[in-house]
Amino acid sequence: MSESSGGGLTGYIQHHLTHNQAVHGAPADPSNFNWDSWAVALALGLLFVLWFGRAARKATAGVPSKGQAFVELIVEFVDGQVRDTFHGDRRTVTPLAITIFMWIVFMNTMDLIPLDLPGMLVTLVSGEEAAHHSYFRMVPTADLNTTLGISASVFLILIGHAWSAKGGMGFGKELLTAPFHAHGFGAIVLAPVNLVMNIIEWLVKPISLAMRLFGNMYGGELVFMLIAGLMAGWVTFLPGVIANAAWGIFHILIILLQAFIFMILTVVYIAGAREGH
């Protein structure tokens, strides 16, 4: 980790855009690992599992509690979206969709936590100097590594669904014969073109998922930084609170919408992977 080199607004933004990293490998070719994104994502994932697991264990057939009713509302909403999009066996697809939706909502929601809260906690424990040299980004989905990791997992799941539905030979044949179907010598000539087109199509899916989520959350986080940096001080304190509150309310829509888009596109891609061209 290194101290932000700039001052003022630039230094403030650079400080808050710096990850808490562990550096591995040789000095000439270091490999950085963002501990903050990993730790927050893991903690929120475990929180989701504990919450829904506890709700499932305590579920009753009678009049549900408010907590059970809320969880059931989420499950029914997601299952309804899967049912409308995916017309096969939903027993594995719906749990995947719920996990993706809730985990991303949890990670996106960290954008609503005050930017300077980690620094304030470090200041209380270790003093102002330690806080100045400490970095911690609270929004895992504003880290491209996180969104690419989730998208890579989705990509492997898509391959698994395609392989399960079509078999190894069927999947391989589709890669070589679609989208430009031909017969005889034409099929041989077009096979490399079909393969390249299919590889591009398959790779675009996880990349687009990752970039869309990352771009929206990174941009939202940057707006919070700009508001906090530009309106720091007693004179602009009240306008800053109003601006942050207004952007936060609007950002709630982005938080939910981006999680929904990631979830529904995953289900759409699964449905497409199981179908033939």
Rank of each mutant, 00 (worst) to 15 (best):
M120W: 12
M120T: 11
M120Q: 12
M120F: 10
M120S: 12
L121C: 03
L121W: 10
V122R: 13
T123D: 14
T123E: 13
T123I: 07
T123G: 11
L124K: 15
L124C: 15
L124F: 13
L124G: 15
V125I: 14
S126F: 14
S126I: 06
S126Q: 13
S126G: 13
G127Q: 08
G127N: 10
G127P: 04
E128N: 09
E128K: 10
E128D: 07
E128V: 08
E128T: 10
E128A: 13
E129C: 07
E129D: 12
E129Q: 11
E129H: 12
E129A: 14
A130Q: 07
A130D: 07
A130C: 05
A131K: 06
A131P: 06
A131S: 10
A131E: 10
A131F: 08
A131V: 08
A131Y: 05
H132R: 03
H132A: 08
H132F: 03
H132P: 00
H132W: 00
H132K: 06
H132T: 04
H133I: 04
H133F: 11
Y135V: 01
Y135H: 04
Y135T: 03
Y135Q: 01
F136Q: 01
F136E: 00
F136W: 01
F136P: 00
F136L: 02
R137F: 02
R137K: 09
R137S: 04
R137Y: 01
M138G: 02
M138I: 01
M138Y: 03
V139N: 05
V139S: 05
V139Y: 05
P140F: 09
P140I: 05
P140R: 06
P140D: 06
P140E: 10
T141K: 10
T141H: 08
T141S: 11
T141M: 10
T141D: 09
T141I: 08
A142L: 11
A142M: 11
A142Y: 07
D143C: 01
D143R: 02
D143V: 00
L144D: 08
N145V: 12
T146A: 13
T146M: 12
T146Y: 13
T146V: 06
T147R: 15
T147C: 12
T147M: 14
T147A: 14
T147K: 14
L148I: 07
G149E: 15
G149Q: 10
G149N: 14
G149Y: 14
I150H: 11
S151I: 03
S151D: 07
S151T: 04
A152Q: 09
A152P: 05
A152Y: 07
S153E: 02
S153G: 09
V154I: 13
V154G: 07
V154N: 05
V154M: 14
V154W: 07
V154F: 12
V154E: 09
F155M: 05
F155Q: 05
F155G: 02
F155S: 08
F155H: 06
F155V: 01
L156P: 00
L156N: 00
L156I: 02
L156D: 00
L156K: 00
L156Q: 02
I157C: 02
I157N: 02
I157V: 05
I157R: 04
I157Q: 05
I157L: 07
L158F: 04
L158D: 01
L158R: 06
I159F: 03
I159L: 06
I159Q: 06
I159H: 01
I159G: 00
G160H: 01
G160Y: 01
G160D: 01
G160C: 00
